[in-house]
Design a protein around this nucleic acid. Structure first.
Lengths: 223, 223
DNA sequence: GACTGAACGTACCATTTCGTACATTGTTTT
DNA sequence: AAAACAATGTACGAAATGGTACGTTCAGTC
């Protein structure tokens, strides 16, 4: 179709480094998130890739470096999705509720990312610590929450004295656990946690929990 | 020192199977929780044991079986500690608060166990599913919470309609996340989460969060 | 004290797995 | 078109790793 393979910038070349690297990263993401850093096999990643094992080492030096790049790519992808959220035009209560529900669902929709974070925690965050990129990416995540909370306090809906970072911690904890511990929790308590109706319930609970925590107690104001 | 090595039941024998097995399990616990199922090395476990590699296979068949036994031992140990909690003599609000704070601290004090559960979730709970022992051990964990909640509702302190299992889920989520994601959270938000004063704050937040969620709203009763 | 089965040590094997040497093809620049 | 560099394929090496064969010692029994 493309008449001029030489001039077009979107040429389908025989050598296509960028797409090869992207392909490797995509496969690595699946493998690492499924089996961990030590459990994943370079040979298996190579097999599932359009490229060969040689290419993995050519572009990513070694297994650990590939893992680090995978982690960075995962964070980038997720943070990009999060940036789409726009809450400034909503009333504080509604905005906070939306934020919580968004976070909850967002975690559910990115189980691979959650698993990578679990794995990274097993490694004591050693690789994340090496990445200035990830640090900078996440710096701004709290800003949204900070502004919503500030508005809520100013307009008299939220109680004062809460730390947005700790608030974010609470929301993250509930959303993260929902994905990370699904398997053990479901099996131990014989409860189909992943079932849609239970997920809906949990989302409601989480949202209500956060709101009750932040909302000004109507009975005795400013307590 | 022991004069009659043959008759004494606490004899220090040359062959001591039980202590060998216990020793292997203890080392395996440390290694598996630190490095995961695929990351842990049988040779390394053997080295750190009083016994030899031969003994590991003699008593535990293979790596996966050893891992399963380690998981079972870990659950047993933790559930035993939990059983010490006695809340029946306390008022519902106080009892619930105690339960939450106990759970929170208990998780902090058993990081190895938390890591094992994380690892088991990475493996989709495949090994836990094989263990009837663990299933039975955990069946009763919710009972304490169920009775406290029932008393709280009956005495008019708690609102109705909450599922104790879901309540347990909330408490677990907050306590678990506090340990499981310490590393990534601390590094990303440049916050010393493990610092004693921050741990105290988080424990307070978690306790208050759960109480606010369960407590009857004084402003509009039974809503 | 001989016998038997459990408990244990040593050395080793087969495979897996990360990583690389070497050769080849594609692409761009001059 | 020829040189120069980037991209890729194939085959292989060396170490790590799970697991076992084989032999020995210990402890209770007849």
């Amino acid at each position: 179709m493309a008449a001029h393979p030489k001039t077009s910038s979107t040429t389908r070349r025989k050598n296509d480094p960028e797409s090869v690297q992207a392909d490797i990263l995509a496969v690595a993401m699946r493998e690492f998130s499924e089996k961990g850093l030590s459990g994943a096999r370079i040979d298996e990643i190579a097999e599932k890739t359009r490229a060969s094992k040689r290419m993995i080492y050519y572009y990513f030096k070694d297994k650990e470096t590939l893992y680090l790049h995978t982690l960075e790519a995962a964070y980038q992808k997720v943070r990009l999705q999060e940036a789409e959220l726009d809450l400034d035009h909503l009333a504080p209560l509604e905005a906070l509720s939306r934020l919580v529900r968004f976070t909850f669902r967002h975690h559910v929709q990115n189980p691979d990312f959650i698993r990578l974070v679990m794995i990274e925690n097993i490694h004591h965050g050693r690789y994340l610590a090496q990445s200035a990129l990830i640090q900078s990416l996440n710096a701004g995540v709290i800003d949204v929450l900070t502004s919503v909370y500030a508005r809520g306090v100013a307009e008299g809906y939220f109680r004062e004295g809460l730390d947005p970072r700790e608030l974010h911690w609470l929301i993250s904890a509930l959303s993260f656990f929902n994905v990370s511990n699904q398997h053990t929790f479901s099996r131990i308590f014989d409860w189909q946690q992943a079932a849609p109706e239970n997920q809906r319930k949990l989302e409601d609970h989480v949202a209500e929990m956060v709101l009750r925590y932040v909302r000004l107690d109507e009975a005795n104001p400013q307590k």
